[in-house]
Deep mutational scan, measured.
Amino acid sequence: DELVREILGRCTCPDQFPMIKVSEGKYRVGDSSLLIFVRVLRSHVMVRVGGGWDTLEHYLDKHDPCRC
């Protein structure tokens, strides 16, 4: 939770990309009902993408309208 909030807090946009914790390891992202699975691996916040894992920073770079 703290690492996810820290990464989201780096955004300086007036309207921050919403990530709402639904349950342990599950977050709702953006304005959709899309759920992502998150885990911490060796101090990196990882997001389940397709059949693999990606860093939360890279995921936000691709999906946050402010960072695109």
Rank of each mutant, 00 (worst) to 15 (best):
P18H: 09
R67S: 03
L60F: 01
V45H: 04
V38W: 01
E2P: 09
R39S: 10
R48T: 05
L34F: 11
D64W: 02
G30L: 05
K26C: 15
S23K: 08
E24G: 06
V45M: 06
R5P: 00
C68Y: 14
E6P: 01
Y27D: 00
L3K: 12
K21N: 02
C11P: 00
S23T: 12
S33R: 12
D64E: 04
R39V: 09
V4S: 02
V29T: 05
V40M: 09
F17I: 02
V49K: 08
H63F: 12
V29S: 07
D64S: 00
Q16G: 11
V45G: 04
D31R: 11
D64M: 01
C13Q: 01
V29M: 10
L56P: 02
P18K: 13
V4G: 00
R10M: 07
K26S: 11
C66D: 06
R48D: 09
S32I: 03
R5Y: 10
P14G: 06
C66R: 03
P18S: 12
R48G: 09
L60T: 00
V4N: 01
D15S: 13
R67A: 03
V4P: 03
I36R: 05
G25E: 07
H58W: 03
G25S: 10
K21L: 05
G9I: 05
P18E: 11
E24N: 11
R48F: 07
K21P: 04
I36S: 04
V29G: 02
I36K: 07
S23H: 08
Q16D: 01
R48W: 07
R67N: 00
H63N: 11
P14S: 10
K62D: 09
I7T: 07
D64L: 02
E57R: 01
H44R: 15
C66W: 00
F17C: 00
K26L: 10
H58A: 13
R39H: 12
D15K: 13
C66I: 03
V47L: 05
R5I: 06
D64I: 03
D61M: 11
F37C: 15
R10V: 03
C68E: 12
F17R: 01
D31T: 14
P14Q: 10
E2C: 08
V47F: 01
L3T: 06
E6V: 04
C11F: 02
G52W: 09
L41A: 10
Y27E: 03
Q16E: 07
P14T: 11
F37W: 14
M46D: 01
E6T: 11
R48N: 14
T12M: 07
R39P: 03
T55A: 05
D61S: 10
S43W: 06
M46A: 05
R67H: 01
Y59E: 00
L34P: 14
V22A: 08
M19Q: 00
V49N: 13
C68V: 14
D1L: 03
D31E: 13
K21D: 02
Y27G: 01
D1V: 04
E6G: 07
K21G: 04
V4K: 04
Q16N: 04
D15R: 13
R67K: 05
V47A: 07
D15C: 10
P65F: 00
R10I: 03
D15L: 12
V4F: 07
R39M: 10
S32A: 12
D1W: 05
G30R: 08
M19I: 07
I20F: 11
S23F: 02
R48P: 05
V40F: 07
E57M: 01
H63C: 07
G50Y: 06
T12L: 04
V22N: 02
H44L: 08
Q16R: 12
H44M: 15
H58N: 15
I20V: 12
V4W: 03
E24L: 04
H58F: 01
T55H: 07
G9V: 05
L60G: 01
V45K: 04
H44E: 15
M19Y: 07
K21Y: 06
C13P: 00
R5V: 05
V45W: 02
C66A: 01
V40S: 08
D15T: 15
I20Q: 13
V45T: 04
T55M: 06
C68I: 12
V4D: 01
L3F: 09
Q16Y: 02
G51F: 09
E57L: 01
Y27W: 14
V40L: 12
V29C: 09
M19R: 06
H58L: 04
K26H: 12
C68P: 08
M19F: 15
L60E: 02
K26R: 13
E57K: 05
C13A: 00
G51W: 06
E2A: 09
E6K: 10
R5F: 09
E57H: 04
F37D: 15
I7R: 02
L60R: 01
C68A: 15
G30T: 05
L34W: 11
D1G: 05
L3G: 04
F17H: 00
L41N: 12
L34K: 10
K26W: 15
P14A: 11
K26P: 02
D1N: 05
I7P: 00
H58G: 13
I36W: 04
R28K: 12
H63E: 11
Y27T: 02
Y59P: 00
M46G: 04
G50F: 01
R67Q: 01
R42L: 05
E6S: 09
P18T: 13
C13H: 01
E6Q: 11
Q16T: 11
H58K: 11
Y27K: 05
D1S: 09
D15A: 13
I36N: 04
G30K: 07
H58E: 11
K62I: 11
R67I: 04
S32N: 12
S43V: 05
P14E: 12
L56R: 01
C11W: 00
K62V: 14
P65E: 04
W53L: 11
S32P: 11
D31M: 10
I7K: 07
V4M: 08
P14L: 06
L35T: 14
L8M: 09
D31I: 10
F17D: 00
L41G: 08
E6F: 04
P65N: 06
H58M: 06
K21E: 07
K21M: 08
I7S: 07
R5S: 14
E6M: 08
V45Q: 01
L8P: 02
L34C: 15
R42H: 14
E57G: 05
D54V: 15
H58T: 09
G30F: 01
I36L: 15
R67M: 01
D61I: 08
R10H: 13
D64T: 01
I36V: 12
V29N: 03
V38L: 08
E24S: 09
L35A: 11
D54L: 07
V49F: 08
S33I: 02
V49T: 15
K21T: 03
Y27Q: 01
V45C: 09
E2N: 14
G30Q: 05
R5M: 12
C13M: 03
V22H: 09
F37S: 15
P65L: 03
L56M: 04
V45S: 01
G51V: 07
V40R: 12
H44I: 13
Y59Q: 05
G51L: 09
S23P: 01
